[in-house]
Measured scan of single mutants.
Amino acid sequence: ARCQGVVCAMKEAFGFIERGDVVKEIFFHYSEFKGDLETLQPGDDVEFTIKDRNGKEVATDVRLLPQGTVI
């Protein structure tokens, strides 16, 4: 199932997405972002798939959504 959220933090090689369905942040590695990383910034709406890696939830297949998609 695809989830939606808003990019809330960006570091050197990874970032965090504030999920739209639950009050929780989820980790994503930049290699999982399908698009131009140069244009990705905090506040952007994205959709993603949640996978379990070593007992921790991570966002994979992260894709940009049109602004205003995530309420």
Rank of each mutant, 00 (worst) to 15 (best):
A1M: 07
R2D: 08
R2K: 15
C3H: 15
C3Y: 15
Q4L: 07
Q4S: 04
Q4P: 08
Q4K: 03
G5L: 02
G5Y: 02
G5W: 02
V6L: 07
V6Y: 08
V6I: 11
V6S: 11
V7P: 00
V7Q: 01
V7F: 04
V7A: 00
V7E: 00
V7G: 01
V7H: 00
V7W: 00
C8F: 06
C8W: 05
C8T: 15
A9E: 04
A9S: 07
A9F: 04
M10P: 00
M10N: 00
K11G: 04
K11E: 11
E12I: 05
E12Q: 07
E12V: 07
A13Q: 10
A13Y: 11
A13H: 14
F14V: 05
F14C: 07
F14E: 06
F14N: 08
F14T: 07
G15V: 02
G15Q: 02
G15I: 04
F16R: 07
F16M: 04
F16N: 04
I17F: 00
E18I: 15
E18D: 06
R19A: 08
R19T: 12
R19D: 05
R19G: 08
R19S: 08
G20Q: 14
D21I: 05
D21K: 07
D21L: 05
D21R: 07
D21Q: 11
D21M: 09
D21N: 10
V22T: 11
V22C: 11
V23P: 12
V23Y: 11
K24G: 07
K24H: 08
K24T: 14
E25F: 06
E25M: 10
I26V: 07
I26R: 01
I26W: 02
I26G: 01
F27L: 08
F27W: 06
F27R: 08
F27M: 10
F28K: 00
H29E: 13
H29N: 10
H29M: 11
H29C: 09
H29F: 12
Y30R: 05
Y30F: 13
Y30K: 12
Y30P: 01
S31Y: 07
S31R: 09
S31K: 13
E32P: 03
F33H: 02
F33D: 01
K34D: 11
K34S: 12
G35F: 02
G35A: 01
G35L: 01
G35R: 01
G35N: 05
G35Q: 04
D36E: 13
D36N: 09
L37T: 10
L37Y: 11
L37H: 07
L37S: 05
E38L: 10
E38F: 05
E38G: 12
T39F: 09
T39L: 08
T39D: 11
L40A: 02
L40E: 00
Q41S: 11
Q41R: 12
Q41H: 07
Q41W: 06
P42M: 05
P42W: 02
P42A: 15
G43Y: 03
G43F: 01
G43R: 03
G43H: 02
G43I: 00
G43K: 01
G43Q: 01
G43A: 01
D44L: 12
D44M: 13
D44Y: 07
D44E: 07
D44W: 04
D45I: 11
D45W: 06
V46H: 02
V46Y: 01
E47G: 08
E47C: 06
E47N: 04
F48W: 11
F48T: 03
F48A: 03
T49R: 08
T49F: 08
T49V: 11
I50P: 05
I50M: 11
I50Y: 04
I50G: 02
K51I: 09
K51P: 02
K51E: 14
K51F: 08
K51L: 09
D52P: 09
D52L: 12
R53A: 14
R53P: 06
R53Y: 15
R53H: 12
N54T: 09
N54S: 15
N54D: 14
N54Q: 05
N54H: 14
G55H: 03
K56A: 09
K56R: 12
E57N: 12
E57Y: 05
E57P: 13
E57S: 10
E57K: 12
V58Y: 15
V58E: 09
V58F: 12
V58R: 08
A59N: 01
A59C: 02
T60P: 00
T60Q: 05
T60F: 03
T60I: 06
D61N: 15
D61R: 02
D61T: 03
V62L: 03
V62D: 00
V62G: 00
V62M: 02
R63S: 10
L65C: 07
L65G: 08
G68P: 12
G68W: 08
G68Y: 11
T69A: 11
T69P: 15
V70R: 14
I71Q: 15
I71G: 15
I71F: 10
